[in-house]
Amino acid sequence: MSILSFFNRRTSAPVARDRLQILLAHERAMVGQNDLVGVLREEILAVIAKHVQVEPEHVRVKMERGDAISTLEVEVDIPAQAKVRIALSA
């Protein structure tokens, strides 16, 4: 037992490598996800703005990651007096 633990103590580098690989895979995915939400928000805003006048801050995009299912929540406030341009663009 003492011999085994002696050798185990000496090879800590593989543990470091494995921990880093798992952690960074996770962290890179998180950063990518943040970007994805930003990109989605801008593109959704652009599509809506083609038809309805909306303020950029009235478009909210939220993504929740779950183990089995992930949800994308898009919330757009359209003011009552907003000009609708559907007729024009059609």
Partner: peptide, 16 residues
């Protein structure tokens, strides 16, 4: 130390 497994090797860091 890297050869003895006590420190991340060059290749480990490059791969990561």
């Amino acid at each position: 130390r890297a050869e003895r497994g006590e420190m991340l090797k060059v290749d480990d860091v490059l791969e990561i």
